[in-house]
Computed example of a mutant assay.
Amino acid sequence: MNSSTKIIVIGSLLGTLGIAGLPKAISINQPQLPVAIMPQHYSSTQMMINQDKNVEVNEEREKLDTANDADTEVNDDKVPTFLSQVGEYGESAYDMAKANDWTKATANLSLLENATKSLHTEIKGDNKTQLAQLDSKIAALDKVVTAKNRISAMRDANQVTLIAANITKEFEPKVPIEVTLLDYYGRELEIWSATGNTSQLKKTASEMRRTWNEVRPSILARGGTAQVQKFDGLVASVEAAKSSKDYDRLATPVLDEVDNLEKVFK
Rank of each mutant, 00 (worst) to 15 (best):
G21Q: 14
S243H: 10
V175A: 00
V35M: 07
V55P: 05
S12V: 15
E113F: 09
I191D: 05
G15C: 12
I177C: 02
Y42L: 12
S4Y: 15
T116A: 03
K263P: 07
L64P: 03
G87E: 05
D259S: 14
L134N: 01
V179S: 07
L33R: 14
T198A: 08
N75F: 13
P176A: 01
N158G: 08
L14H: 11
T5S: 07
S92I: 13
S237P: 11
A205G: 04
L22D: 00
I177Q: 05
T252I: 08
M47Y: 15
K203P: 06
V55T: 02
A67M: 03
K169V: 05
V86C: 08
A164Y: 01
N75Y: 15
V235E: 01
Q200V: 12
T121K: 05
A99K: 09
A236S: 11
K117I: 09
W192L: 00
E56S: 10
Q40E: 07
D76V: 15
A67P: 02
I219H: 09
A115S: 03
G21L: 11
M47H: 13
S243P: 08
G233H: 04
S206E: 14
E214R: 14
K137G: 02
A194D: 06
P173M: 01
I191M: 04
V258S: 03
L201R: 11
N114L: 03
T116Q: 04
D248K: 14
L111D: 05
T106I: 06
M38V: 10
N100E: 07
D77V: 13
I123G: 01
Q200S: 00
Y184I: 04
N75E: 06
D142S: 09
G223I: 09
D101P: 11
I167P: 00
L109V: 07
L131S: 07
P217C: 03
D77L: 00
A107L: 04
Q229N: 13
P39A: 01
L111Q: 03
L13F: 14
D95E: 07
G87R: 04
E257V: 13
T66P: 02
S118Q: 02
D69E: 12
E190R: 13
S193P: 05
V228N: 10
A164M: 11
N127K: 13
K169W: 08
D52S: 12
G90L: 01
V175E: 01
K230S: 02
V35H: 06
I167R: 01
G18K: 14
K63W: 10
D156L: 14
V55F: 12
T168C: 02
W212D: 02
Y89R: 03
T129G: 07
T116V: 02
V215G: 01
V175K: 13
V160G: 01
I163L: 06
